[in-house]
Simulated assay, not measured.
Amino acid sequence: MTAADLTPLDDLPLLDHHVHGALTTDLARPEMESALTESDRPVPGWMTQFDSQLGLAVRRWCAPVLDLPAHVAPEEYLRRRSELTAAEVTGRLLRASGIATWLVDTGIAGPGVLSPAEMAAASGARAWEVVRLEAVLEQLAREGFSAAELPARFPEVLAERTASAAGLKSVVAYRSGFDFEPNRPSDSEVVAAAERWLRAGGGRVVDPVLLRFLLWAGVDRGLPLQLHTGHGDPDLRLHRCDPLLLTEFIELVEPTGTELVLLHCYPFHRNAGHLAQVYPHVFFDVGLAINHTGLRSDSVVAESLELAPFAKVLFSTDAYGPAELHHLGAVLWRRAMRRTLAPWVEDGVCSAEDALRVASMIGRDNARRLYGC
Rank of each mutant, 00 (worst) to 15 (best):
L215T: 09
A352F: 02
D285R: 02
A28F: 00
D179N: 14
P8E: 01
V190G: 02
A319N: 05
W216Y: 10
G91K: 07
R153S: 10
E324M: 08
A276M: 06
W128I: 00
T24Y: 01
A3N: 09
C241L: 12
S186E: 14
R369L: 13
V65K: 09
T106F: 02
P224C: 11
Y266L: 04
R161S: 05
L84A: 04
S299L: 15
D16C: 04
R335I: 01
S297R: 03
G218S: 05
P243A: 08
L15I: 04
P8G: 01
R29F: 01
H292F: 15
L68K: 07
M337H: 05
A166P: 09
H71V: 03
V43R: 07
P343T: 05
T48M: 00
L307W: 12
F180G: 08
R126F: 00
F283N: 07
R29D: 12
P155Y: 07
M1Y: 11
Q226D: 03
L15R: 02
E248W: 00
Q277K: 13
Q277F: 15
W46C: 00
E195S: 10
L332W: 12
E259F: 11
L328M: 06
S39V: 04
F310K: 14
D347M: 12
E83D: 14
V278F: 13
M119G: 01
R212C: 11
Y174K: 04
L66H: 06
Y279E: 02
